[in-house]
Write a protein that binds this DNA or RNA. Sequence first.
DNA 1: CTTCTTGCAAATAGTTTGCATATAG
DNA 2: CTATATGCAAACTATTTGCAAGAAG
Lengths: 134, 134
Amino acid sequence: MSNLKYSRQRKAIVDFLESRTDHPTADIVYINMRKEFPKISLGTVYRNLSLLVEIGEAIKVPCSDGAEHFDGCTLKHYHFQCNRCGAVLDLNITDMDSIQDLNKIANVNFGGNIEGNSIFFYGKCPKCAKELKR
Amino acid sequence: MSNLKYSRQRKAIVDFLESRTDHPTADIVYINMRKEFPKISLGTVYRNLSLLVEIGEAIKVPCSDGAEHFDGCTLKHYHFQCNRCGAVLDLNITDMDSIQDLNKIANVNFGGNIEGNSIFFYGKCPKCAKELKR
DNA sequence: CTTCTTGCAAATAGTTTGCATATAG
DNA sequence: CTATATGCAAACTATTTGCAAGAAG
């Protein structure tokens, strides 16, 4: 591919992604970068985000809400979206074992080769669940 | 909401979705509808697709490839996208049981309320897997 | 110097919407 | 007749790209 050179903007984007537990869209990253780099352009943000996804330092989280969300955490975990407030959260599943062999199970009778999976949970987030109890 | 009236265009879209095992984008639906309705507009296609999603006769399948994909099959099943050719396929998992209680497992320590999940598998589809073996 | 990166602006892709006309009930 | 649906075009949102200037190695 291409040889990477250091850039302050890219560094800041990586740091920002790592500092968040939610999953910002490109636009949110852009708005936050402008605090430190008032002249940064959306193009730069998009270019860096897809570069980070390419080299595996971030992942894309596809949601059904128009925009792509980005996640700086490369460790395997699962995603949740609240169908009331739209928040995208990480999910720490305690009993990972039952998920481990999902790929094998799915591969039975498939004919191709299943390399991975992404699980998306939905429902009410803790905050909304609390508000609805009142 | 709104009271539905019959429309030949909507009927054709439903039939088309049901006839496919892949998961067409709005654009593909549009192109195919034009065979029967040369003057149909993209607006009509989009309006009907989101209407069908609303009333539960279709679902949106979010992919990381720019466009939303639509699925006419309301029965629960899982999705697969080939990371070589981009095809989106259905997956019939024989041993559903291990997936059944995923929601319960995920709900432990969550605090909110998990209502459902969607699992997306990726890898090589049967066709691509075959081509790569040569 | 040479290569990669940026900012800016223009271009593109996917989707939504306003409005006048057509169709279903 | 009244409400919903359609076609068309314009508007909008998210994302990508060409290019000249700037920074890294």
